[in-house]
Design a binder for these strands. Structure first.
Lengths: 234, 234
DNA sequence: CGCTGCGTTGAGACTACTCAATATCCGTGG
DNA sequence: CCACGGATATTGAGTAGTCTCAACGCAGCG
């Protein structure tokens, strides 16, 4: 089991503790809710395989995805201290998910201070990503936002060794991407076409290739520091 | 010292531990950076008095505020597990700020598991607020977003007993509000005028009064659950 | 072979932006 | 007490970016 790119900070013993906290591993199909808003919650979910997302909706059906999760991510660890779910979690592809009861997480906070800080950190990386999304939603154009998202996903996938050079599997539909970027599907389509036409990106089937990383990063004003993926300095 | 509306979950002993973690209390003027992006960080800041915000900027000066902080909020507690600042913190009014060295927070995580979870929770409430902002930025109109913000601030101020009926001090300029909502100052002005004209809100000087809470809540589709302000059920 | 879901295209509308001018408020100094 | 400067708020007019609605294409699949 991997804890997102933070493996290097966990000792073998801590890794074992974490592994033991898993009660069960469950398979989900694509496009299924794992947790629904306001669900009672006494367990968290660690994504072992596949992509998932967290989203909020408005009464009339407008939906905003507020997080994308890749293998290794704890998708709803925050529900442990939070004790509520204020949003839903859904799979985007078939997924394998490890279930961690909150009771066991509580035990960890009582015996493993360093591991606790790493778990805490994991929820904070989600928050840092969301801050960038918020900056994008408020202050970047749709193209800049899309470019930034592809940069983010590329870097995150690279740390879990799920890229092949500049190519990677990208399983979202344009509709799901639209809900992520906060624009309409129609506009998403036009934005993507723009990126393709300017030859910074290709996207066919479920494979994205970054053709011009420099230019893509420049148009997104992308700086990966916020992902906190370099080893902790202590 | 208050930890945001979560006091009821802290024992007297825990409160004392937290109080002892404070190394210093510092005064800041309005409109001053407390922490700047990429600053080395070995301490966090607890807001005792005044309002502060966290923000991100783009190279050309576009700015997005990603959090508003009221008295009792830990403005950059996340910098403790995170060990980086990926954004800046600034005062919006004159502020009194308690400085908590990370060394002491580390000690807390080693000896006070419950207090640690409450601190963790505090960072997660920020994240929950940000998710609502993200939903707003992506899927709500500017008016809905503004309405939602006023609802949020009202509820948060009420829990720290800083409201007078439906009136409360609101020290932001329209420019700062614009950077919060992710729209231009000009449009912010028109949005506010709309809210005033429809008589759901008044805002004169630095005082806001919610004239029609029902209607404001309905147009914002506001549900305060996400603020996790009711006592924890355990 | 005809759904059904996804992607693409076009045309027109609307929200929010830009630029620019003017108004108001408030603190400061004469 | 008034004049002034600077920051903030307001207004207007034209524009850009994004949305809406609607149609059409294409592919996978029962």
């Amino acid at each position: 089991m991997k804890m997102r790119a933070r493996d290097q900070t966990l000792s073998a013993e801590e890794n074992a503790v974490l592994r033991e906290a898993v009660a069960d591993v469950v398979q989900f199909e694509a496009d299924r809710d794992i947790v629904r808003e306001h669900d009672r919650c006494d367990q968290s979910h660690l994504l072992m395989h596949g992509w998932a997302c967290r989203y909020l909706t408005l009464a009339d059906g407008r939906r905003q995805i507020v997080a994308l999760h890749l293998p290794g991510d704890f998708v709803d660890l925050h529900s442990f201290p939070f004790k509520r779910m204020d949003h839903s979690v859904a799979t985007l592809t078939p997924c394998a998910i490890a279930v961690v009861p909150h009771e066991r997480l509580k035990r960890i906070t009582e015996t493993q201070p360093h591991l606790t800080r790493v778990l805490w950190l994991s929820t904070l990386i989600d928050a840092a990503i969301l801050r960038q999304w918020m900056l994008g939603a408020g202050r970047r154009s749709a193209v800049e936002r899309a470019a930034h998202l592809f940069c983010e996903i590329f870097v995150r996938l690279r740390t879990i060794e799920a890229v092949d050079g500049a190519r990677f599997a990208f399983p979202l539909t344009q509709l799901e991407l639209a809900d992520t970027l906060g624009v309409t599907p129609v506009h998403t389509n036009r934005v993507i076409q723009g990126l393709k036409r300017s030859e910074v990106l290709s996207w066919r089937g479920q494979v994205v290739e970054i053709l011009d990383p420099q230019r893509l990063g420049r148009m997104a004003e992308f700086d990966p520091t916020y992902l906190a993926l370099e080893p902790e300095r202590r």
